[in-house]
């Protein structure tokens, strides 16, 4: 497994697409806060508590992790291209012929995917934080007596979401026959989750205004809370977490990671390779 991790990490680091990811990370970090200033910078807008909540350096930092946003969408797509090269170049054959088990090949792919995705997103988010601090306040959150704890808990939750994204991506790489299919399916699933999140938010808003069946509302709220595509609304936005919040934000991606990794391992262990 160590040998596999070493070569998978080396091939990812040697890929020029990683430079593209770096450039995009820096570009988004610079552009996003400026766009927020241009779009929502007026006093009228700032008076709206929802928008004011978005325009803090801290929320900018955590918004950057969203799977439907900027780098949150592009980084996995670029990473899919890099990871799938093992299949398109046929180099995965070398690993099997070298006697490595398919399980360790898959787990190495998943680990490297997670590490690279986390590194790229952290780089981008910390750059965003740096640029945002020029324009916005940080606005600390008092959580268990410390904003630092709030920051760390939020970051851990975001990293869990990133690992979920890596699990989804690795599964797709193991299932799909070419990189094009991987990208299309990944984007469709990500957008699907984000879209479902938007719909549930609107429905919940409508229930607030117009009322309706309690059971339906509870179902919609449950879907809203377990939907990973909607986690950007909850993580790091300055609202303190309840135990229930943390359970929702933890169990859902953890289940997704387990589900896709198991599915990917089962498929990859049975798959005929070209």
């Amino acid at each position: 497994m160590t040998e596999l991790l070493k070569i998978d990490l080396r091939r990812v680091l040697k890929d020029k697409l990683l430079i593209v990811v770096g450039i995009l990370a820096a570009t988004f970090a610079l552009i996003t806060p400026i766009l927020y200033v241009v779009l929502f910078g007026s006093q009228d807008m700032m008076d709206d508590p929802m928008i004011a909540n978005l325009i803090t350096a801290k929320s900018q930092f955590f918004q950057n992790f969203s799977m439907g946003n900027n780098l949150g969408l592009i980084a996995p797509v670029l990473l899919a291209i890099v990871l799938c090269k093992d299949f398109s170049f046929g180099t995965v054959r070398n690993k099997i012929i070298a006697g490595k088990s398919r399980t360790s090949i898959y787990l190495s792919l998943f680990t490297v995917c997670s590490v690279t995705l986390i590194a790229a997103m952290l780089l981008s988010s910390f750059l965003t934080l740096g640029v945002s601090l020029i324009f916005f306040d940080y606005q600390p959150t008092d959580f268990t007596g410390s904003d630092f704890v709030y920051f760390l808990v939020s970051l851990a939750l975001e990293i869990l979401v990133l690992i979920f994204m890596a699990a989804l991506l690795s599964w797709l790489c193991a299932v799909a026959k070419n990189v094009g299919t991987v990208i299309v399916l990944y984007v469709a699933i990500s957008f699907g989750l984000v879209m479902i999140g938007s719909i549930t938010q609107v429905v919940i808003g409508l229930f607030d205004m117009l009322g309706g069946s309690e059971t339906v509302l509870k179902i919609v709220q449950f879907v809203d809370r377990i939907n990973i595509g909607n986690f950007a609304v909850y993580i790091g936005m300055g609202t303190e977490y309840s135990v229930k919040d943390i359970l929702y934000l933890t169990i859902s991606p953890a289940f997704g990671i387990l589900f896709f990794t198991t599915l990917g391992l089962l498929k990859f262990n049975k798959r005929d390779l070209k």
Binding site: R11, K14, D15, K16, K85, F89, G90, T91, V92, R93, N94, I96, I97, A98, G99, K100, S101, K274
Partner: peptide, 21 residues
């Protein structure tokens, strides 16, 4: 079988090489 396979070297159909290296 994995260990036995590690005693084998092979080119299957086309050489398995990283084209970008």
């Amino acid at each position: 079988i994995g260990k036995a396979r590690s005693r084998v070297g092979a080119i299957v159909e086309s050489p398995s090489i990283y084209m970008n290296m």
